[in-house]
Design a protein around this nucleic acid. Structure first.
Lengths: 353, 353
DNA sequence: TTAACTTGCGCAAACGTTTTCGTGTTGAAA
DNA sequence: TTTCAACACGAAAACGTTTGCGCAAGTTAA
């Protein structure tokens, strides 16, 4: 119906030039009090707002941040988005979301769609398939085109950009140490295959904790799940693998799971086998989400502070964007930051206290 | 560093005009085979992509959809986004997300930020505060400015736009009927205050089911929670209110909860009071999310098909956007659609079968 | 009276595209 | 030789802003 009103229309209506209107609205002293008021009144009446696209084109920046994440139906990622959106909005930016669905191709396509002027910079977490293929050309390309990237959680070292991560090793280690100090003698870990970096790191933390306490790790206590997208099919497989773990290691009294789902599955299986939580078996999970808090028993977890990660990532990106404006002239070697967000252990019912 | 290459730069480099470059890249027959190939090769070499912002400005459309939702850390809403993003991408659109955080002001601000040319249309679900204040001027204003809106889930009738909803009454009714046919005699409902439209409608479905089966509703079996944003504080209050419900109605043998959280809380409290699920108490929840599937016992739920809702909403919006291009001339009365997505009952362990 | 300011406003360029409408150069038909 | 179509390309406008600069009219100072 009625299109949004433009400077040109106001100018025509009031019989002045476009520049006069623009200046009047921006309170330029070049314009007389009289005309300024007249124009402002008219603009207010018609609810004039400058067209963002035109501004973006002129200023060569969009005030928009592109987010690419593997999936959004995931407590951690939505928390991160919440954090990003929070500071982005506060600092005058919008947020545009692309989902890679853990697929390399969709990640590439999405980045290309957004990189063509729609956004000023990326915040992203790498798709599993990309990690598996180790093909990172789309990241380097965007960076070479002058578009900054901030990676979070699933990062890869060879890409020169800011990163926000949790200390997966440390978090895992603390969790396992908690189990040890709570008296667990046979602690199993349910992790992912090693190409998922966080799975690998958390496994490393598990091993370090054991080593520090002079406990010999046993291969049979380490379960690495092939972590494809969660179908119901996959869920059954998970359950049977976990059951297998319990069956062949009757003396397990502690479980460290790298995510909530593995933890609740472990609990479910353990119960079926007659184990009492936390008396016979104590469980700690990485990733503090809705399952941890509300399932029974509630889970002791390593909280990653997803929102804080998002906030930090957004601040890093925006800082860089707004710094660029200043030292345009720089051939100075860029220096990138890797921020580590501290995890902390939230004790609930799945462990003794 | 290196800015993205533009038509102008290519033109200068190859010593032709901008228009020639543009035409060559779009395979215009006006350009000779020779130059066309030369230009295309050069463009490919420098990885040229047309600047989206410039295109948006020229075409007066952005190929971007704005989404405003109350919160993103919420299974249902993320599912909806997944659906929107799926069809949006398939049809060549991007998706930009604003969070209202259930606040009226943030909803208004966010819409204004996006309405200034950044997007072609909105898909949104109304914030609780907005519903409470019943101030919908920002919706009518955007619509009057020619920007279509599609509302989903939390909608309000007086706004002329397409809507996608689930049949809350019917879904609730089916759930309660399931409880009745499973032998429940005293069915309580845990709902929200009436200003949350879905809470009201689901309560209505509950009442209708009772009525159809000649069961007199009892006021003491209807618990309406003040559903502010979930703080831990609020959680305690919820728990004590639910406990109160059980204490004053010892004979409750069925619970219909309007969301997962209420359902798991009810189960938690019931267990504390020594009730066995589903033998002593059967529970059905609206909203099929991660809690339902993975908590123990898993919940029988009314699934809303959030992703389908999102897909439908996106299709409605894009259809309208692309229809507008054609009948530009129309003063024909716009006719809006309200699509109802069927719910269905997913039976799990919290009910007998 | 003249020179020099000040005031208030408009012109035009620029951001990167696409597209319409020329326009100059061929080559062929008349 | 003239005429005209075909061909290959360029100029310019448009989308909606912002802003440096120019310019006319009015004002002040000399």
């Amino acid at each position: 119906m009625k299109r949004k009103i433009t400077l040109k229309q106001i100018a025509k209506e009031l019989d002045v030039s476009i520049s006069t209107v623009s200046k009047a609205l921006r309170n330029s002293i070049e314009i007389s009090e009289d005309t300024r008021q007249k124009i402002q009144a008219f603009a207010k009446l018609y609810n004039y707002r400058p067209n963002n696209i035109a501004l973006s084109l002129k200023n060569r920046k969009t005030k928009t941040i592109g987010i690419i994440i593997p999936e959004i139906v995931h407590h951690f990622f939505s928390k991160v988005i919440t954090g990003i959106e929070l500071v982005a909005n506060k600092r005058g930016y919008n947020v545009i979301v692309g989902l890679s669905n853990e697929s390399f191709d969709k990640e590439v396509i999405n980045m290309q769609m957004l990189a063509n002027g729609s956004i000023d910079g990326f915040i992203l977490s790498i798709a599993k398939e990309t990690l598996l293929q180790q093909d990172y050309h789309h990241f380097t390309e965007t960076i070479n085109q002058g578009m900054p990237i901030v990676m979070f959680d699933r990062v890869v070292n060879e890409i020169p950009c800011d990163k926000v991560i949790v200390d997966d090793v440390k978090g895992a280690k603390q969790a396992v140490e908690k189990l040890i100090s709570n008296g667990c003698k046979n602690i199993a870990i349910i992790s992912t295959k090693d190409y998922v970096s966080v799975g690998k790191l958390r496994t490393q933390g598990y091993l370090e904790a054991l080593e520090d306490h002079k406990i010999d790790p046993k291969a049979s206590l380490i379960l690495k799940i092939e972590d494809k997208l969660m179908s119901d099919d996959h869920l059954d497989k998970l359950e049977s693998e976990v059951e297998q773990l319990f069956q062949s290691n009757k003396s397990i009294d502690g479980i460290f799971a790298v995510n909530e789902l593995y933890a609740v599955t472990a609990i479910k299986v353990a119960r079926k086998l007659g184990l009492k939580i936390p008396d016979d078996l104590q469980v700690i999970s990485f990733s503090d989400g809705v399952l941890s808090k509300h399932s029974t028993p509630s889970l002791t977890t390593v909280s990653q502070h997803g929102q804080k990660i998002g906030e930090k990532a957004a601040n890093l990106l925006i800082n860089r964007l707004e710094a660029e404006e200043v030292d345009y002239n720089d051939e100075t070697e860029e220096v990138y930051e890797t921020v580590i967000i501290e995890t902390n252990l939230i004790e609930r019912e799945s462990t003794k206290n």
